[in-house]
Amino acid sequence: MDAVKVIEIKKSVYESNDREADKLREELRSKGIFLLNLMSSPGSGKTTTLKATINRMKYTHNIGVMEADIDSDVDAIAIAKETGVKSIQLHTGGMCHLDAGMTRQGLDELIDGKVDFAILENVGNLVCPAEFDTGATKNAMILSVPEGDDKPLKYPLMFSICDVVLINKIDVMPYFDFNLEKCKENIKLRNPNAKVIPICAKTGEGVDEFVKWLEEEIRINKG
């Protein structure tokens, strides 16, 4: 038997994924495709927010949606039925997040030469998706009022990687001990550059401001 060799590697576990993500982001940019990675905990209103956003933007953009879940296709069906845009379901096979490789596979199926605004609805989870760069052009997250204004303190990494934070369900704020100013301060503490937009996906309040932000970022990505 050969002698045992020790080979030094000394690299971060996340490094390969980060490299893959940077490659994907650059490829998308060169093709003029904008990819939004939307994250949040389960039940914060990702799908409802997407429906409201897509219905405002679908006449000016070719939108495609990837729904990532551990199981079921309820979200993909809901998006397709209520917005009419192309929507596919990705199953993570028990995994709590998507990585750049899985995102690329999904995009291969989603992008048929027409889609120029792709949206990834990530698995509902405030921990794992923050560790894995998907290669998205921009990261967005939703924090809903019932979850509490202290979440930026409890899940700092998620808030620190997001370009925009939507605070959803503001219509129920009177019924919860949710302090919007305190929440904004907590987000600033983790990420001074994050844009914070209070919305109510159900009534449509604030959604126009999110659309405005998206339009500007899409314009910048096209160069």
Binding site: D2, K5, I7, I9, V13, N17, G94, D99, N125, C128
Partner: peptide, 27 residues
Amino acid sequence: MHELGVVFHIIDDVTAVGRENNLTGIS
């Protein structure tokens, strides 16, 4: 939280290094 996911990443990375170095088994 995402132990299984990172295990797959580690396996991919060290498999690549093992192959580059012509290892037949990683102990």
